[in-house]
Design a binder for these strands. Structure first.
Lengths: 145, 145
DNA sequence: ATAATAGTGGGTAATTGTGGGGGGAAATGG
DNA sequence: CCATTTCCCCCCACAATTACCCACTATTAT
């Protein structure tokens, strides 16, 4: 169960420290991939496998099935934590999130997985999220919380 | 589990290096064949057998069933990795993918198998895939991720 | 107050991608 | 059936990258 947000620094080698309290849920492996809104998503392996299974069920004969597969898997990466609990982010994903080397990133716990944001984007997204909720209360209703 | 995309160079002998982190899933043998959209697909033997079985189940009375069979089986080849983890691509397959000798190729992990693309084709396909997804968000919703 | 843990940085050793040479098997032609 | 050529696989080599390991400081917990 991942909760809260933390600001860490990406080091000069592109390594990201996973908060210590989250590490045991990543026993060995994590999958990092592109998220929506220009953030990155970090899944524990078990959670990822659930998602991958759904994508794999799409028919390969359908162009959209092939497209979704490619979008989904091609930008993902299988990462293992080093002894200090860090993962190495490939440049492509780092750039997608708009994060520089030796710069700060925000790690956000979303219960079953983590998100990684550049601090600027996170702030903007936060503001936009609040507006969305104010503008369109119907969204809330459908959720039935 | 194959994830991510990597650009490698096909050497002058037509040999393709399989990324090191993927090799152990190809213990011994791989099957290379024509994929859709002018790429090549590379399967571990066990996965190949599963898929071959599905293709075999297609009705031979359906023209598309016959077409898929032919695409799938006629150009398939059984390749073994050499000690450096490379496979030798036959000219016919190489040309189908539009890849030259001593040129770069993109290897894409799609969870259970790999695809091989010429860099230009991969870029084009990517753009088209993004469009497809934008046009039809229903696909995403059905996944319920 | 002391010990343990966390975040961060860097050095070193192993691995990886890539190229080419040589031996042997298979194919080709006489 | 034999000789020659072609092709394929194994080996070696090397540069660049990667990943592992150790170290230091600050914070947290005992």
């Amino acid at each position: 169960m991942f909760l809260g947000q933390y600001t860490y620094t990406l080091d000069g080698k592109g390594r990201l420290t996973i908060p210590a309290r989250f590490r045991e849920e990543f026993t060995g492996a994590a999958v990092v991939t592109r998220g929506l809104d220009h953030c990155l998503t970090i899944y524990p392996l078990t959670v990822w496998e659930e998602i991958a299974q759904k994508v794999n069920a799409l028919p390969i004969t359908d162009p959209r099935g092939r497209a979704l597969r490619r979008i989904f898997f091609a930008d993902a990466m299988n990462a293992t934590l080093d002894r200090q609990g860090r993962v190495l982010l490939p440049d492509r994903l780092r750039e997608y999130a708009g994060v520089d080397l030796n710069a700060e990133v925000v790690i956000v716990g979303l219960d079953r997985f983590l998100e990684l944001w550049s601090p600027q984007r996170w702030e903007e997204a936060n503001a936009r999220q609040m507006e969305l909720m104010d503008e369109d209360p119907a969204l809330w209703e459908n959720l039935q919380i």
